[in-house]
């Protein structure tokens, strides 16, 4: 299989590069390879789109966890503060 053919067929490598690109700059060679692949592969184009959306959704999920509905119960907090006071008094 020729070099170009290999790039065109290799969705595994293309999706790997899509993930890498979201974190850091690709090398020139990697960038060219990815472009060649995506030019002919609508499935990997779709993968890239979904992958970006998934990142956004995970980030949103983590952010939403900072909303006030996730709370410790008051008893636990009371005991925890008492424990801290105890430690403070030791010193």
């Amino acid at each position: 299989m020729g070099y170009l053919r290999k790039i065109q067929y290799n969705c595994k490598q293309a999706t790997f590069l899509i993930e890498k690109k979201m974190i850091r700059r690709l090398t020139f060679r990697e960038m060219i390879e990815l472009r060649i692949h995506l030019a002919g592969c609508s499935v990997c184009v779709l993968y890239g789109k979904q992958s970006r959306v998934i990142n956004q959704m995970v980030q949103e999920l983590f952010r939403s966890s900072m909303k006030p509905e996730i709370r410790l119960d008051d008893n636990f907090k009371k005991e925890l503060q008492e424990r801290i006071e105890e430690e403070l008094n030791k010193h």
């Binding site: 999920l61 983590f62 966890s65 900072m66 909303k67 006030p68 996730i70 709370r71 410790l72 907090k77 925890l80």
Partner: peptide, 10 residues
């Protein structure tokens, strides 16, 4: 405490 708890639980 609530902030740290939420941070940890996720």
């Amino acid at each position: 405490a609530d902030y740290l708890y939420a941070y940890a639980i996720r």
